[in-house]
């Protein structure tokens, strides 16, 4: 499948998001770029605090004070998302892009039935009679593999199990037939067997509808299973980006390599000692100068602690931001200055 044949849906350029806290400015997202094409599943991997969710919230226009987009652009099919009026944004959310969240219990309203909430989502975006909205809701519940959808429509969120609730969330996300689904750690709160069910379901739905998915997770195993392209984030920056095979078999950034080496694998033949990434995550209030990963990196050079590395193209749609990939790092840095 040649990705260039698909339509470019989302174009993010040099996006900056900051939180202005009493303790100072936290640059949660510090200049990220990526494109999303239709029918693509893009994984965004990173540890807690790497800015992977914040970036998704920025796309959806869900950033809350004190968070603010401080620079860059987000374009959806050529239209500037950041310049949307609140009305445009409302129709953009749901119709074009929808989002499902990590914890399905906190995202569903406990005092309304599942049916009520699904119908509300339909009616918000389409002016259609209620019985049609209901039919649409039932159709969606069937699509996400819920038995007796008519019955379930009358139930409240607490009557469903965690896996069921996540299915309902997915149904709600799909109800207006969006072009992009942003899934923010959709399986993290679930057990492995349920996680497997949800991943299978998302794969099926993706094939069926052809929509693009941005899959945010910290679990590289899940990424290996579902994603076509992967962006690895660290301290608000994309440190490496490429297709799934490149990231797993030809990682270029020491952080990606470190993540892959530090994970125990269930299929390891013999007990091998894990190779951890030393040190602690970055303090986002006082990030180190230069490469954010520098202080923890085993290959750290002098320049890494002084100046931020550029994005280097290392293959077809494969980029990494690391000074190691620059032949003459000192010269490059001097030129950049």
């Amino acid at each position: 499948m040649e990705i260039n044949m698909h339509k470019k849906l989302l174009e993010i350029k040099n996006l900056h998001v900051s939180f202005f806290t009493p303790a100072g400015e936290v640059k949660a997202v510090g200049g990220i770029d990526y494109d999303l094409y239709s029918g693509e599943v893009m994984g965004i991997v990173g540890e807690s605090g790497s800015g992977k969710s914040v970036e998704a919230y920025a796309i959806m226009g869900l950033l809350q004070s004190p968070g603010r987009v401080t620079g860059g652009s987000i374009k959806f099919e050529g239209r500037d998302v950041l310049a949307f009026t609140s009305k445009e944004q409302q129709s953009f959310r749901g119709n074009e892009v929808s989002m499902i969240f990590q914890n399905p219990m906190t995202c569903l309203n406990p005092v309304y039935t599942i049916g009520n909430q699904l119908i509300e989502a339909v009616c918000c975006h389409d002016v259609i009679p209620k019985n049609q909205a209901e039919a649409r809701a039932i159709e969606m519940l069937t699509l996400v593999g819920i038995n007796n959808p008519e019955q379930r429509m009358k139930q409240y969120p607490h009557e469903l199990s965690g896996g069921m609730r996540q299915r309902v969330m997915i149904a709600m996300g799909l109800v207006c037939d969006p072009k992009i689904l942003i899934a923010d750690e959709p399986t993290t709160a679930l057990d492995v067997t349920i996680q497997a069910q949800i991943i299978e379901l998302m794969k099926e739905i993706q094939k069926l509808t052809g929509m693009a998915i941005i899959f945010i997770t910290h679990n590289l195993g899940v990424v290996a299973e579902i994603c076509d392209k992967v962006s690895v984030m660290y301290a608000g920056k994309i440190v490496e980006q490429g297709c799934v095979e490149d990231i797993f078999y030809k990682p270029k950034h020491p952080y990606t390599l470190g993540l892959l080496k530090s994970m125990p694998r269930v299929d390891e033949e013999q007990h091998e000692r894990l190779i951890p990434i030393e040190g602690t995550p970055v303090d986002m209030l006082n990030p180190p100068p230069g490469c954010p990963f520098g202080p923890r990196c085993g290959f750290c050079m002098k320049i890494c602690l002084r100046q931020e590395p550029p994005q280097i193209e290392v293959g077809d749609c494969h980029t990494a931001a690391c000074w190691l990939l620059v032949d003459d790092a000192e010269k490059e840095a001097a030129d950049a200055q």
Binding site: A196, A224, F248
Partner: peptide, 10 residues
Amino acid sequence: AVPIPDPRVS
């Protein structure tokens, strides 16, 4: 059901 961080295997 355990995800394996290896696209070809998984």
